[in-house]
Simulated scan of single mutants.
Amino acid sequence: MSLLGRLLVAGAGAAAARYLLREVRTAPVGPDLERTNFRGRTVTLAAGPALAAGAAGAGAFGAGSVPAGAATLVAGLASGAVGLYDDVVGARPEQRTAKGFAGHLAALRQGRVTAGLVKVVGVGAAGLGAAALLAADPTVRGHRHRRGQGPLRGAVDVLLGAGVVAGTANLVNLLDLRPGRAAKSGLLFGAPLLGGVHGGIAAGAVGAAAGLLPADLDEQVMIGDSGANALGAVLGVGLAARTGPVGRAAALAVLAGLTAASEKVSFTQVIGRTPGLRELDELGRRTD
């Protein structure tokens, strides 16, 4: 895809996300999506489904093939849907006690299925479906190599792809603790993925995130789990589409390491103590 094509896809993603934000915000369900953020301001979670649909739709349109476009839709829309479920149901008092993956597993051992666990399983399934679609795509890197390998190695490659999609979705969601942080992370993650046959996937996600970033920074909206998971999942498809088994394994190792670190270390504290990251994190955010 040409540079002009990627710019058009990014613009479509931004326009779609902003339009959908207005539609969801003014819909009958709009008041039910209002929340109080960490500073006590009233914000709306309408940006979450708007970002999910905008990123998935524009990314699918910009994909270099039909299977890759279908993978983008599956990953983005499904991850956004289960993220929205967690945003709504997970806010209930009985759900708030389970924190992190370990907390969700502990609740399951007690016979309780948390909204967070539904989200984890849903994002994993979305990643698996997307990776299976990519495995049949001749435009995806490593496809020729996969054609000659046995079913076991093919299955491992699909699992690696699923891990990349789900891991990226989870990582972006882990960063969604301050206004604009997850959207900025999406822009940074997406920038290196804009080239190549499937660069339009990342362009759609980047455009949708950029379109909602001003409202996010101004604390008018919150993208929540719905938007963060979907943004990461679409970018994960873009990453999986341009990597073979070795690249996917390396990416998954990094994602798994960061996820494990998040259970022990506060990313917010690390960002606050690191020059450069701190200023980038605060850039454009309201201070009053």
Score class of each variant (00 low, 15 high):
Met1Trp: 06
Ser2Val: 04
Leu4Gln: 09
Arg6Gln: 13
Arg6Lys: 13
Gly11Trp: 01
Ala12Pro: 07
Ala14Thr: 04
Ala16Glu: 10
Ala17Leu: 10
Arg22Trp: 00
Arg22Lys: 12
Val24Ala: 02
Val24Glu: 03
Arg25Glu: 15
Ala27Asp: 08
Val29Asp: 01
Asp32Ile: 03
Glu34His: 13
Arg35Val: 12
Asn37Cys: 08
Asn37Tyr: 09
Arg39Tyr: 01
Arg41Gly: 07
Val43His: 10
Ala46Gln: 02
Leu51Lys: 09
Ala52Phe: 08
Ala55His: 06
Ala55Trp: 04
Ala56Met: 05
Ala56Val: 04
Gly59Met: 12
Gly59Leu: 09
Ala60Val: 11
Phe61Leu: 15
Ala63Cys: 14
Gly64His: 06
Ser65Cys: 07
Val66Glu: 13
Pro67Val: 06
Leu73Cys: 11
Val74Glu: 12
Ala81Ser: 14
Ala81Lys: 02
Val82His: 07
Gly83Asn: 03
Leu84Trp: 02
Asp87Arg: 10
Val88Glu: 06
Val88Pro: 02
Gly90Trp: 00
Gly90Met: 04
Arg92Glu: 15
Arg96Val: 05
Arg96Ile: 01
Ala98Arg: 12
Phe101Gln: 03
Ala102Lys: 11
Gly103Ile: 03
Gln110His: 11
Arg112Ala: 13
Gly116Thr: 04
Leu117Asp: 06
Val118Trp: 14
Val121Pro: 12
Val121Ser: 14
Val121Leu: 15
Gly122Trp: 12
Gly124Ala: 09
Ala126Arg: 03
Leu128Lys: 11
Ala130Asn: 09
Ala130Lys: 03
Ala131Lys: 01
Ala132Arg: 14
Leu133Glu: 10
Leu134Phe: 07
Leu134Ser: 11
Ala136Glu: 02
Asp137Arg: 13
Pro138Ile: 02
Val140Ser: 00
Val140His: 05
Gly142Lys: 08
Gly142Phe: 03
Arg146Gln: 09
Leu152Arg: 11
Gly154Ala: 05
Ala155Trp: 15
Asp157Cys: 05
Val158Arg: 14
Val158Tyr: 08
Leu159Gly: 09
Val164Glu: 13
Gly167Ala: 05
Gly167Lys: 03
Ala169Tyr: 09
Leu171Gly: 05
Leu171Met: 11
Pro179Cys: 08
Gly180Ala: 13
Ala182His: 09
Gly190Glu: 00
Ala191Thr: 03
Pro192Gly: 09
Pro192His: 04
Gly199Phe: 08
Gly200Trp: 12
Ile201Val: 15
Ala208Ser: 11
Ala208Tyr: 03
Pro214Trp: 00
Pro214Ser: 10
Asp216Lys: 00
Leu217Gln: 15
Gln220Ala: 12
Ile223Gly: 04
Ser226Trp: 00
Ala228Ile: 01
Ala233Phe: 05
Val234Arg: 13
Val234Trp: 04
Gly236Ser: 07
Val237Trp: 05
Gly238Gln: 08
Leu239Phe: 08
Arg242Ile: 05
Pro245Leu: 07
Pro245Trp: 10
Gly247Pro: 07
Arg248Ile: 01
Ala249Ile: 10
Gly257Arg: 10
Thr259Ser: 15
Phe267Ile: 04
Gln269His: 12
Val270Ile: 11
Arg273Asp: 01
Arg278Gly: 00
Glu279Asn: 14
Glu279Tyr: 11
Asp281Met: 06
Leu283Ser: 15
Arg285Asn: 05
Arg286Trp: 01
